[in-house]
Simulated scan of single mutants.
Amino acid sequence: MADSPPTLAALSAQLAEQASALAASMASIPLTPPDYLDLVRRSQDVDSMAEQLLKLCVQQSRDAGHTWQEIGDLLGVTRQAAFQRFGKPIDPRTGQPMDKTVHMTDAAERAIKIVTDVLEGRMDEARQSFNAQVLEAFTDEVRGSGLATVTGLVGAFEGFGQGEPFVRRIGDHTVVDIPLRYEAGDMKARVAFDADEKVAGLFIVPPETP
Protein backbone atom coordinates (compact mmCIF):
# COMPACT_ATOMS: atom_id res chain seq x y z
CA MET A 1 0.00 0.00 0.00
CA ALA A 2 1.35 3.44 -0.95
CA ASP A 3 2.17 5.87 1.84
CA SER A 4 -0.52 8.48 2.40
CA PRO A 5 0.50 12.11 1.74
CA PRO A 6 1.66 14.10 4.79
CA THR A 7 -0.91 16.20 6.58
CA LEU A 8 -0.60 19.91 7.30
CA ALA A 9 -0.15 19.18 11.00
CA ALA A 10 2.54 16.57 10.36
CA LEU A 11 4.52 18.84 8.03
CA SER A 12 4.22 21.74 10.48
CA ALA A 13 5.56 19.57 13.29
CA GLN A 14 8.49 18.39 11.15
CA LEU A 15 9.32 21.98 10.16
CA ALA A 16 9.21 23.11 13.79
CA GLU A 17 11.53 20.26 14.76
CA GLN A 18 14.02 21.08 12.01
CA ALA A 19 13.91 24.80 12.80
CA SER A 20 14.52 24.09 16.50
CA ALA A 21 17.50 21.88 15.63
CA LEU A 22 18.91 24.64 13.43
CA ALA A 23 18.48 27.22 16.18
CA ALA A 24 20.18 24.94 18.68
CA SER A 25 23.15 24.38 16.38
CA MET A 26 23.63 28.16 16.12
CA ALA A 27 23.76 28.64 19.88
CA SER A 28 27.53 28.14 20.07
CA ILE A 29 28.56 30.49 17.21
CA PRO A 30 31.39 31.12 16.37
CA LEU A 31 31.91 27.58 15.16
CA THR A 32 34.78 25.76 13.55
CA PRO A 33 34.72 25.82 9.70
CA PRO A 34 33.27 22.30 9.11
CA ASP A 35 30.36 23.09 11.44
CA TYR A 36 29.32 26.00 9.24
CA LEU A 37 28.74 23.55 6.41
CA ASP A 38 26.43 21.62 8.70
CA LEU A 39 24.48 24.84 9.21
CA VAL A 40 24.11 25.15 5.44
CA ARG A 41 22.76 21.59 5.28
CA ARG A 42 20.34 22.15 8.14
CA SER A 43 19.18 25.46 6.63
CA GLN A 44 18.57 23.75 3.30
CA ASP A 45 16.49 21.08 5.06
CA VAL A 46 14.38 23.78 6.71
CA ASP A 47 13.94 25.60 3.40
CA SER A 48 12.88 22.39 1.63
CA MET A 49 10.39 21.53 4.36
CA ALA A 50 8.98 25.08 4.34
CA GLU A 51 8.46 24.82 0.58
CA GLN A 52 6.56 21.54 1.02
CA LEU A 53 4.42 23.13 3.71
CA LEU A 54 3.69 26.17 1.54
CA LYS A 55 2.64 23.95 -1.38
CA LEU A 56 0.28 22.00 0.87
CA CYS A 57 -1.19 25.21 2.30
CA VAL A 58 -1.81 26.55 -1.21
CA GLN A 59 -3.39 23.25 -2.26
CA GLN A 60 -5.72 23.24 0.73
CA SER A 61 -6.57 26.91 0.13
CA ARG A 62 -7.57 26.04 -3.42
CA ASP A 63 -9.59 23.05 -2.19
CA ALA A 64 -11.38 25.44 0.19
CA GLY A 65 -12.41 27.63 -2.76
CA HIS A 66 -9.84 30.44 -2.69
CA THR A 67 -8.83 31.87 -6.07
CA TRP A 68 -5.38 32.09 -7.63
CA GLN A 69 -5.81 35.88 -7.46
CA GLU A 70 -6.18 35.74 -3.66
CA ILE A 71 -3.18 33.44 -3.31
CA GLY A 72 -1.08 35.55 -5.68
CA ASP A 73 -1.96 38.74 -3.81
CA LEU A 74 -0.92 37.12 -0.52
CA LEU A 75 2.41 35.96 -1.99
CA GLY A 76 3.08 39.24 -3.79
CA VAL A 77 2.92 37.74 -7.30
CA THR A 78 0.40 37.62 -10.12
CA ARG A 79 -2.26 34.93 -10.19
CA GLN A 80 -0.55 33.42 -13.22
CA ALA A 81 2.79 33.25 -11.43
CA ALA A 82 1.10 31.60 -8.43
CA PHE A 83 -0.56 29.07 -10.72
CA GLN A 84 2.69 28.30 -12.54
CA ARG A 85 4.43 27.65 -9.23
CA PHE A 86 1.74 25.70 -7.42
CA GLY A 87 -0.94 24.70 -9.91
CA LYS A 88 -1.60 21.21 -11.22
CA PRO A 89 -2.64 21.75 -14.84
CA ILE A 90 -4.27 18.93 -16.79
CA ASP A 91 -2.93 18.23 -20.27
CA PRO A 92 -5.89 18.68 -22.65
CA ARG A 93 -4.32 16.15 -25.03
CA THR A 94 -4.25 13.31 -22.53
CA GLY A 95 -6.46 14.30 -19.61
CA GLN A 96 -3.53 13.59 -17.29
CA PRO A 97 -1.66 15.95 -14.93
CA MET A 98 1.11 17.73 -16.79
CA ASP A 99 4.71 16.93 -15.88
CA LYS A 100 6.22 20.03 -14.22
CA THR A 101 9.57 18.37 -13.53
CA VAL A 102 12.54 20.20 -15.06
CA HIS A 103 14.59 17.47 -16.74
CA MET A 104 17.07 19.87 -18.39
CA THR A 105 19.60 20.17 -15.57
CA ASP A 106 21.85 22.73 -17.31
CA ALA A 107 19.03 25.00 -18.52
CA ALA A 108 20.12 28.04 -16.48
CA GLU A 109 23.76 27.85 -17.54
CA ARG A 110 22.88 27.37 -21.20
CA ALA A 111 20.35 30.21 -21.13
CA ILE A 112 22.88 32.63 -19.62
CA LYS A 113 25.43 31.71 -22.31
CA ILE A 114 22.89 32.18 -25.12
CA VAL A 115 21.67 35.54 -23.77
CA THR A 116 25.26 36.73 -23.36
CA ASP A 117 26.09 35.73 -26.94
CA VAL A 118 23.02 37.54 -28.29
CA LEU A 119 23.64 40.72 -26.28
CA GLU A 120 27.31 40.79 -27.27
CA GLY A 121 26.66 40.04 -30.94
CA ARG A 122 28.08 36.50 -31.15
CA MET A 123 25.15 35.32 -33.21
CA ASP A 124 26.99 32.47 -34.92
CA GLU A 125 27.48 30.88 -31.50
CA ALA A 126 23.96 31.67 -30.30
CA ARG A 127 22.33 30.22 -33.41
CA GLN A 128 23.87 26.83 -32.77
CA SER A 129 21.29 26.44 -29.98
CA PHE A 130 18.24 27.66 -31.97
CA ASN A 131 15.59 25.33 -33.33
CA ALA A 132 14.61 25.61 -37.00
CA GLN A 133 11.81 28.13 -36.46
CA VAL A 134 13.87 30.50 -34.32
CA LEU A 135 16.86 30.09 -36.61
CA GLU A 136 14.74 31.32 -39.52
CA ALA A 137 12.99 34.11 -37.65
CA PHE A 138 15.78 35.53 -35.48
CA THR A 139 17.68 37.48 -38.12
CA ASP A 140 20.29 40.16 -37.45
CA GLU A 141 17.63 42.76 -38.31
CA VAL A 142 15.22 41.30 -35.75
CA ARG A 143 17.96 41.24 -33.11
CA GLY A 144 18.92 44.86 -33.81
CA SER A 145 15.33 46.08 -33.77
CA GLY A 146 14.58 44.25 -30.52
CA LEU A 147 17.64 45.56 -28.72
CA ALA A 148 16.93 49.10 -29.97
CA THR A 149 13.40 48.89 -28.53
CA VAL A 150 14.73 47.81 -25.15
CA THR A 151 17.36 50.56 -25.19
CA GLY A 152 14.65 53.11 -25.93
CA LEU A 153 12.77 51.94 -22.85
CA VAL A 154 15.49 51.49 -20.21
CA GLY A 155 18.79 52.67 -21.68
CA ALA A 156 22.06 50.81 -22.08
CA PHE A 157 22.63 47.28 -20.81
CA GLU A 158 24.81 47.25 -17.69
CA GLY A 159 24.93 43.58 -16.69
CA PHE A 160 23.02 40.73 -15.15
CA GLY A 161 20.74 41.65 -12.27
CA GLN A 162 20.53 40.31 -8.74
CA GLY A 163 18.98 36.94 -8.09
CA GLU A 164 19.33 33.51 -9.59
CA PRO A 165 17.78 32.47 -12.92
CA PHE A 166 14.25 31.14 -12.47
CA VAL A 167 13.80 27.76 -14.20
CA ARG A 168 10.48 25.95 -14.59
CA ARG A 169 8.62 23.59 -16.87
CA ILE A 170 5.66 25.07 -18.77
CA GLY A 171 3.87 22.57 -20.99
CA ASP A 172 6.45 20.95 -23.25
CA HIS A 173 9.02 23.72 -22.69
CA THR A 174 11.70 24.47 -20.11
CA VAL A 175 11.62 28.22 -19.48
CA VAL A 176 14.40 30.28 -17.89
CA ASP A 177 14.06 33.89 -16.71
CA ILE A 178 17.32 35.79 -16.15
CA PRO A 179 17.41 39.19 -14.37
CA LEU A 180 19.02 41.96 -16.44
CA ARG A 181 20.15 45.42 -15.30
CA TYR A 182 19.90 48.50 -17.54
CA GLU A 183 20.82 52.09 -16.81
CA ALA A 184 17.22 53.22 -16.26
CA GLY A 185 15.50 50.06 -15.07
CA ASP A 186 15.44 46.31 -14.79
CA MET A 187 14.34 43.76 -17.38
CA LYS A 188 14.60 40.01 -17.70
CA ALA A 189 15.63 37.71 -20.51
CA ARG A 190 13.34 34.74 -21.12
CA VAL A 191 14.66 31.68 -22.93
CA ALA A 192 12.36 28.77 -23.77
CA PHE A 193 13.82 25.39 -24.68
CA ASP A 194 11.78 22.80 -26.56
CA ALA A 195 11.69 19.05 -25.93
CA ASP A 196 14.89 18.67 -27.97
CA GLU A 197 16.61 21.26 -25.72
CA LYS A 198 16.80 23.77 -28.57
CA VAL A 199 15.84 27.42 -28.15
CA ALA A 200 12.19 27.83 -29.12
CA GLY A 201 11.88 31.44 -27.97
CA LEU A 202 14.06 34.29 -26.72
CA PHE A 203 12.69 37.57 -25.36
CA ILE A 204 13.59 40.56 -23.20
CA VAL A 205 10.56 41.54 -21.13
CA PRO A 206 9.70 43.67 -18.07
CA PRO A 207 10.53 41.93 -14.76
CA GLU A 208 6.86 41.74 -13.72
CA THR A 209 5.92 39.71 -16.80
CA PRO A 210 4.49 36.36 -15.56
Rank of each mutant, 00 (worst) to 15 (best):
I170M: 14
R79P: 06
E120I: 04
Q14I: 08
D47G: 10
L75N: 06
L8I: 08
G161C: 13
E109T: 11
Q59D: 08
V102I: 10
V154K: 09
T105S: 15
T139K: 12
G72N: 02
A184M: 04
E197D: 13
I204T: 00
P5G: 03
D73S: 06
L53W: 11
I114K: 07
D99E: 09
V176M: 12
T105F: 13
T139M: 01
R122H: 14
I112A: 12
V150I: 13
D140N: 15
L119C: 00
H66E: 12
I90P: 10
D106W: 05
V150H: 00
P179K: 03
M1K: 05
T105W: 11
D73N: 08
D99S: 05
T7C: 11
A132W: 02
L8A: 05
Q84T: 11
V115N: 11
V118D: 00
A50C: 01
A156I: 10
T67S: 15
E136V: 15
F83Y: 15
P5I: 01
L75H: 01
R85N: 06
A108P: 03
F157G: 04
P5H: 06
L56Y: 01
K100C: 01
R181F: 10
A126R: 10
L31E: 07
A132C: 04
A82S: 13
D73F: 06
Q133T: 09
L202K: 03
T139G: 13
A82F: 05
P97A: 07
L119A: 11
T101E: 09
E197I: 07
E183G: 03
I112V: 11
K88D: 04
T7N: 04
K113C: 13
L180Q: 05
P5T: 08
T101V: 14
R41N: 15
I204R: 08
E158W: 08
D45P: 02
L11D: 03
V191M: 01
T94V: 05
D38Q: 13
R181K: 11
P165R: 02
I29V: 15
A16M: 13
A16G: 12
P206V: 10
A107M: 02
R42E: 11
E158F: 01
E51C: 03
A82R: 07
R168F: 13
P207V: 00
P6K: 10
A126L: 12
A189Y: 01
L75K: 01
L180W: 10
A16S: 13
T7K: 06
D124M: 10
I170T: 09
G201H: 00
M123E: 02
I178R: 13
G163C: 07
A24T: 15
Q69S: 14
K113A: 11
P6I: 08
A107F: 02
P207L: 07
A126N: 09
T174P: 04
K188I: 08
S4C: 04
L22I: 12
R110G: 05
A50S: 07
R85V: 03
G152F: 00
R62Y: 08
E51I: 06
V77K: 00
T151R: 03
L53E: 04
R122E: 05
T105N: 15
V154W: 09
H173M: 13
V115I: 14
D91R: 14
A107P: 03
F83E: 08
Q60Y: 15
L39Q: 04
G171P: 00
A13K: 14
D140Y: 14
F138Q: 00
Q162S: 14
Y182G: 03
P92T: 00
R79K: 15
D186K: 11
V134L: 09
F86W: 00
E70G: 11
S43K: 11
M49L: 15
